[in-house]
Each structure stands twice: as C-alpha cells, then as structure tokens.
Computed example of a mutant assay.
Amino acid sequence: MNLYKRGNIFVISAPSGSGKTTLCNKLIKALPDLKMSISHTTRKPRAGEIEGVDYFFVDKETFEKMISNNEFIEWAEVYGNFYGTSKSVLQQLMEKGYDILLDIDTEGAKNMKKLYPESILIFILPPSLEELERRLLNRNEDKDIIKKRLSKANEEISNYKFYDYVVINDNLEKAFNELLCIVCAERLKTKKIKDDEIEKIFKK
C-alpha cells in the first residue's frame, strides 16, 4: 500500500572532508525511491566518475549560457569550478514521484529553502576541525587547497543553525543510521500521508 506522498526534497550540506558523499551514496543504496539530483559542473571528471551518474560535465561556456537562461535553481563557484542544480533535472525526478537528495553548499541550501520551503535541510559536521584536517590530509591534496577548505569549513559550520537537522559524523554507521531515521521520520509525518488511501482502509 502506497500511503505516503513523494516529492520530498532532502538537502545535505557539509564541509569538504565530512564524509557527506559516502553518506549520500549509502542513503541512495538503502532507499531505492530516494534519488540523487545530479548537478552540472565545469570541473574535469575524476577517476571513476561517470557522466550523468556523478555529474553532468559541461564546459564553462555552456554553464554560463545555462545561467543566462535561468536554468539553475542554485549555482556556485567553488575553487575555480562551477556547480549548479538544474531546474529540469529536479522537476523530472519530482514528476516521477521520487524523493530527492541534493548535495549542495550552504548558500545553495538557503536558495532551495526560499524556492521550496518544505525542503528538509540536514547539516553534517565533522567531530572536530582537527579530525577534518586529518581527513583532508589523507586525500593527498595540495596544502594550499586544504588550507582553503579548512577556512571555508569555518564559514560553512557557522550556518548550521539554519538547518533542520545536524548529524555529527564521528562514526560512519551511526551517522548513516541517523540520516536514515531523519528521512523515515519526515516521510511518516501526517501531512505527507495520502488522505484518500487512509479513507480506503476504513471505508465500510
């Protein structure tokens, strides 16, 4: 029995190195009716990334044209690369009846809340800045990039009160279970239940 309305929008933000991508992937695998909204980006694909699965990879000229045509719900420049959430991608998922998961930064989350007030915003925190730095160092990235990411992390973390939920990723399985609980609880709210389906149950 399909009692519950779909089309919920879950927005996840976190400083780089907080384990956000891993947690999002685990959620998608656990919940087949939850789909990731795939962003457009101008950055080059990393090893193993697939067009249309991880991102829609476009050049800067194409991205700027999409901005001019007002095709994005939100977009941002991050370390010289552009990222954006396409209106059409989101609309297609909603029309198919899926719940949607977005992985976007704090500014993008604020824009989503303006456009879709019912969006559920979740912020993932690292257990400490020291642990965040350790995780970033393990990526073997350039020290200047790590410094920029840590500086941006402080700015992003200061926005956590804007979100509906906060999950601290000090243990991956624990953080995943907390995210799963949030999604399930939001789906079970009475305003998300189809009244006509309830009426069928108790109809004489």
Rank of each mutant, 00 (worst) to 15 (best):
A76V: 15
Q91G: 00
K147L: 10
Y83M: 04
T62N: 07
D170P: 00
D195A: 12
S39P: 03
M66C: 10
L125M: 13
A175R: 01
L102Y: 03
H40I: 05
R6K: 15
I193Q: 07
T21P: 08
K161A: 12
C184P: 00
L121F: 08
N154A: 08
R187A: 12
I201Q: 07
D33K: 11
A47I: 01
I198E: 11
V166Y: 11
P45L: 09
K147M: 09
T41C: 03
M1L: 12
S158L: 11
F162I: 04
Y116H: 15
L3Y: 13
K114S: 09
L90Y: 01
P126G: 02
E141K: 11
W75A: 00
Q92T: 12
N140I: 00
S86H: 10
F63D: 04
P32N: 05
K87D: 06
R187I: 10
E95K: 14
L3F: 15
I104R: 02
R149Y: 05
L136G: 04
L27R: 05
T41D: 05
L136T: 02
D105A: 13
S158A: 15
L129Y: 14
R135D: 04
S13C: 02
V78D: 02
T106G: 09
L34R: 01
E173V: 09
R134F: 11
I104H: 01
S13G: 02
E133R: 10
G108M: 05
G52Q: 01
S151N: 13
M66Q: 12
A76Q: 15
S39L: 10
R134K: 15
V167A: 06
E61H: 06
K29W: 00
F123L: 07
N70D: 14
N81E: 15
E64W: 00
K60G: 00
K189F: 05
I146R: 07
P126A: 12
Y163Q: 01
R149S: 04
I122K: 07
V78A: 10
M94V: 05
S86F: 02
S119R: 11
L136P: 00
Y4W: 15
S119I: 07
S37N: 12
L27N: 06
I146A: 00
Y165A: 07
C181D: 14
L3N: 02
N70C: 06
R149N: 06
K87S: 07
S128K: 11
I9E: 02
V53T: 11
D33F: 13
D170Q: 13
G17Y: 00
Y55W: 06
